[in-house]
Design a binder for these strands. Structure first.
Lengths: 192, 192
DNA sequence: AGGCTGACCAAAATAGGTGTTTGATCTATA
DNA sequence: TATAGATCAAACACCTATTTTGGTCAGCCT
């Protein structure tokens, strides 16, 4: 097995186990045994358990970014549709990002501080995407905003992220998701 | 001391201690000693620790209801202003409802199931208030809604409650509150 | 009687000590 | 260079003894 094959194997096994048991309940020993590598090998490729987990989470976030990016750059959509799709796609993809979602509990405990950089990067990136959409909407005369675009973008993010906890950590996804589309429409209508 | 005086003393001491140490870290022994009553007295007035805590929480919720009720019945406000004020007042009052806020962690742990009834009552009540405001807005021609009022009310509640966790449990209140007013305005504008 | 007390109980939480598992390192190997 | 596995200190789980806890009850006081 080549360098990259071994590395990928470790990451995919780690992803599976972290998904199944969570960060703390998954040991490096278990990852080593399941991937049929020695523990030393894991530490040859990753400097720590946290770094390995970070990579797993980063992969999930890259998927999220890719799907959201598709929405933002899809020129068959109006700005309004983009905003709506952005919110819907985000929720749907997040539902399967088990490892990232686990880190949302950060507020309660003090694990996952090491993931803060990743989270902040995502925040900045999403803010940029929303600004792009909103500016596009303003240019096309779809939106008429009387406040700064950056602030508006922040508020959107605040709402979407505010819903992450009840949706995913309190398992209200099934209950609330049917309303989500209607709620997004009101939000967007408020920007016209 | 009369029956009611003793009872009030117990409740106010319990409120103080629960506020300070939380439900689990406050013992009935401590409440008894601090209020200079025998433990038996506590159990003469309240059937259990949970019931005592429930009363403390209920008091906080009654305050919240009173202040929100003032907004809803204030006829100097338009429906739009009522909605805006409702959201603002709710956040501000909630900030001081320490004991109720503690129960928001319910999703993570299994304490506080016994408070579910109280929480559901509040949900129902708030839903009613929002429906009142929205209907008023429709009657006065302020709002033009193309969906059922009950559903719209649910969505409003979902957003407000969704923000409780980041605001209060993740201590983002100071950071996010300045944006809250602007966000509420957009939401409300979406209903015109 | 109604309101309150404090000793009392079983169950739960805690403290202290032991052995195992854990994340991480290091030398050896091919 | 890439992988392996023995090895280490620290964290963790596990057991027992002790304390604390929520809750009860017979009786006291007014």
């Amino acid at each position: 097995m080549s360098f990259n094959q071994t590395r990928d194997k470790i990451v995919s096994v780690a992803d599976m186990l972290f998904r199944k048991f969570g960060f703390q309940k998954t040991s490096m020993d278990e990852i080593a045994k399941t991937s049929r590598k020695a523990k030393g090998s894991l530490y040859y490729h990753f400097s720590s358990k946290e770094e390995l987990f970070s990579e797993v989470v980063q992969n999930e976030i890259n998927i999220l970014k890719a799907k959201l990016g598709d929405v933002v750059t899809n020129n068959e959509y109006t700005a309004e549709t983009k905003l709506l799709e952005y919110m819907m796609v985000r929720m749907k993809v997040m539902l399967h990002s088990d490892n990232y979602r686990e880190t949302l509990q950060a507020g309660q405990f003090d694990y996952f501080e090491f993931i803060d950089d990743i989270r902040k990067d995502l925040d900045v990136w999403e803010r940029e995407q929303l600004i792009i959409i909103i500016n596009e909407g303003i240019d096309h005369g779809e939106f008429a905003i009387d406040m700064e675009v950056g602030v508006l973008s922040d508020m959107f993010l605040m709402i979407i992220k505010g819903l992450e906890i009840p949706f995913f950590l309190q398992n209200k996804y099934q209950e609330y998701f049917p309303y989500f589309n209607g709620m997004a429409k009101i939000l967007i209508k408020g920007m016209r």
